[in-house]
Computed example of a mutant assay.
Amino acid sequence: MPAPPSLPERATGRLCIIAGGGMLPHHVADAARLQGEDPFIIALTGEAGADWAGYDMRVMGIGDFSGISGLFRREGIDRVVLSGGVRRRPDWRDIRPTLKTLARVPAVLKTLISGGDDAVLKMAIDLIEASGARVVGVQEIVPDLLAEVGPLGQMEPGEEARRDIAAAAAAADALGALDVGQGAVAVGGRVVALEGPEGTDAMLGRVAELRASGRISQRRKGVLVKLCKPQQDLRADLPSVGPSTVAGAKAAGLAGIVIEAGRALVLERARMAAEADAAGVFILGAERHMLGSRP
């Protein structure tokens, strides 16, 4: 008689959330706590500005590998989630290596100077794991945040919006392959904005300004599409949307928002759906092959 399948290994140590800017780290921490975790928060210097009262936390720089490694040992941390935005790369003076990571310092500095965001994230993951913990994706800790296939709310895209979806998806896919950003906006079948380091909300602000100045048609609405980069490590920097995305889309005069199902995070799902319905904005989760971009 064959032996029964073995159960997945259960984590025995503590979870750490390395928190950048925005509210995503708070959503992850709260959801993890509801699942019985007691997350320790490393709030990144100059990035994580929100209040972490009620959580064990320490403010540290992402380049302080010596301090991070010591904290992992003291707190019994065996898993790490990277969450939230990082606006500034560490300066070379912020790098504090361990003996294990000392030999990697030249490669680290080269990546910080010339590498794209994805290259920097992969480097950070490698160095964190060299410090004694396993980096896991947000979706492993709080799978309920992942976008699902289909509309979120009552609104759905029409024929004109579907043409904009195809155009914006192709642009977002190409942009991601260049390791630049994850989002694009198309209006009337024409790409009018690409996401850069400033992030989605700022990009939508630019679209609103272009609309107000008459540079974009007042008659055609348009669509925002956010996709994972083709080469992206899914343990870090998944595209995310929330109520602020809906507000930005409404201000920009867009018809809707499309995100990649299973590879994007939806924050405050119920509130986002309600505000999208009130604004007349659709939110659609779709698999990549459905969008006209390459798989």
Results as ranks from 00 to 15, higher is better:
116 G>Y: 12
63 G>H: 02
123 M>V: 07
62 I>G: 11
152 L>I: 00
223 V>K: 00
136 V>W: 01
269 R>I: 04
2 P>K: 14
25 P>K: 05
118 D>Q: 14
38 D>G: 10
115 G>K: 12
39 P>G: 02
244 S>F: 06
102 L>A: 12
85 G>A: 14
210 L>S: 06
211 R>P: 06
240 S>P: 04
94 D>A: 15
239 P>C: 00
82 L>F: 12
21 G>P: 00
264 A>P: 04
54 G>A: 11
90 P>Y: 11
164 D>P: 01
198 E>Q: 11
199 G>L: 14
5 P>I: 15
173 D>N: 03
134 R>D: 02
109 L>M: 06
281 V>T: 01
71 L>P: 09
152 L>R: 03
239 P>F: 03
190 R>I: 00
101 T>L: 03
89 R>T: 09
24 L>K: 01
3 A>C: 11
137 G>F: 09
106 P>K: 14
186 A>V: 02
100 K>A: 13
186 A>Q: 02
100 K>W: 12
245 T>P: 04
174 A>G: 05
1 M>T: 07
224 L>E: 00
159 E>F: 06
189 G>Q: 11
269 R>A: 11
173 D>R: 08
245 T>E: 01
149 V>P: 15
88 R>P: 05
106 P>S: 13
235 R>N: 10
74 R>K: 08
100 K>H: 14
43 A>F: 05
234 L>C: 06
80 V>N: 12
81 V>W: 12
173 D>W: 15
85 G>I: 13
122 K>N: 13
243 P>K: 07
95 I>A: 09
270 A>M: 01
190 R>C: 05
224 L>H: 05
183 G>K: 13
73 R>G: 03
79 R>W: 10
22 G>W: 13
154 Q>S: 14
111 T>W: 09
66 S>C: 05
232 Q>F: 06
273 A>N: 04
79 R>M: 02
2 P>I: 10
260 E>W: 09
286 A>I: 07
123 M>G: 10
